[in-house]
Design a protein around this nucleic acid. Structure first.
Lengths: 248, 248
DNA sequence: GGGGTTGGTGAACGTTTTTGCAGGAATTTT
DNA sequence: AAAATTCCTGCAAAAACGTTCACCAACCCC
């Protein structure tokens, strides 16, 4: 069998079944594993497939989100950088959705070995790109606005979790009125997440500080840490520090 | 044998068998390898064949694969069109993941009012774009390969559902060996989905017909309808019809 | 007809490609 | 932590390749 033929065959096999094992291929085609490996490397090189330990995957699935163009993108990236420093290997982590959380997902180091719980479709899509992260999705009805799961089932599931840390992408925060949001279902979910976590971290761009919305998630004393793109020493944070919130 | 004659012969041989070896040709035509090589070079030069190390391939065989990033994209679109005709307003619908299902999701009419249950992240992302569709996500651990939820929790949830119809994007189907797949977790989920649906529909491109993989989902009698891009009258379907599968 | 030209072919020889194998490193699984 | 896979690197042998040259036959021109 010609090399080109063989590679076409492999490509077909992958596109057909989404993944192949090196060992299977070398058995079917009857060549050494090294040859298959070399073929896979070449195909991966030219971008037709994705090579993984033991075989290869179809590329058609692996599409990442384009977050360029997101509002205040650079600031959110900076927030994500700070947030990452709170994460340790082996942690159980709860997260909401939102563009800031998406940046956090992208900023996770490759070697990090942790378990993420989330009800956000975009966030989950991002988490699964990381090789050592386990992703548990919280199921239920999906809210089209926020692209996260909401509903009683989701909340029940969240309450069964006992997470080390919870990252909230928040909509509005105010020293006096605490955390607020504008979607009743989402508020319920966030409340549950806060309850189920040892430590609660709010991620927000500075713009949202001292704003409020119609529905209350909870007071500031629920919050352990707040992360923004600003320097923690800024004057704007004084009221929050006074209420026991650590600023990062 | 004249040069022209020889080249015509080679061309015919290639179009017949899709491939040809230099060594074979020189034996059959009884000229030196160098001559064959020169012929192949000329034919390749004028664009009639594709020359590779050791021989040559037919040009039609190498039909460019990736058209839209998704393998066999047009065929999958056609399959989706057929599948949509099975859906009625108010239905409860279970679906797996896979690129074919993604096409189905894209092909859903705007006015359709139905409830979709799925454990596939990409599929869910697609469903939520439709204004009148309710999406229920089945939660649990997310398999990175297939981007669908797998695990006991997911299966328990699926078993609680009583869907009108289930669309399976399948990996391999064979008249004798039935439905097969290559991921244990995914097999469990598909089994559960089949159990929980009144009607089971398999979507697959014709290429996957009469192929099999390592793990069995179930026999053909679990299947009500199979949809491919081919005409239902094709001979290839006879074995499936004989087993009671309706072809669309 | 002789000599030169042209196109096709085969042979020689060095180069490149392909492949399998050995070992040790890296990774996954138990 | 140990065992088992899988991967990578370098190496060597075989196959295929390209280049060059020689040869031959046909053809052309004078």
């Amino acid at each position: 069998m010609l090399k080109k033929e063989r590679q076409e065959f492999i490509l077909r096999e992958i596109n057909l079944h989404n993944r192949v094992l090196t060992s299977d291929l070398c058995e079917v085609i009857n060549v050494s594993e090294d040859t298959i490996r070399r073929d896979l490397s070449e195909l991966a090189e030219s971008g037709d497939i994705i090579k993984v330990h033991g075989g290869a995957l179809s590329k058609s699935f692996h599409v990442s989100f384009q977050t360029n163009g997101v509002y205040s993108h650079d600031n959110k990236k900076m927030i994500a950088q700070k947030a990452v420093t709170l994460i340790r290997d082996g942690m159980f982590i709860l997260t909401t959705g939102g563009t800031t959380i998406l940046e956090l997902a992208k900023a996770l180091p490759q070697h990090l070995r942790a378990t993420f719980f989330t009800g956000s479709l975009p966030a989950a899509m991002e988490y699964i790109h990381h090789p050592n992260i386990e992703v548990i999705f919280i199921g239920d009805r999906i809210s089209k606005n926020s692209k996260i799961t909401v509903g009683g089932d989701a909340i029940t599931k969240i309450k069964q979790i006992n997470a080390d840390i919870c990252f909230l992408g928040i909509n509005a925060i105010d020293a006096e009125h605490g955390l607020t949001d504008n979607d009743w279902d989402v508020v319920q979910v966030k409340k549950a997440m806060i309850q189920s976590s040892k430590k609660v971290v709010a991620l927000t761009i500075a713009e949202k500080i001292n704003t409020q919305q119609k529905l209350k998630i909870g007071d500031l004393d629920l919050l352990d840490i707040m992360i923004t793109e600003l320097d923690p020493g800024e004057k704007i944070f004084e009221a929050y520090k006074a209420k026991g919130v650590e600023i990062l």
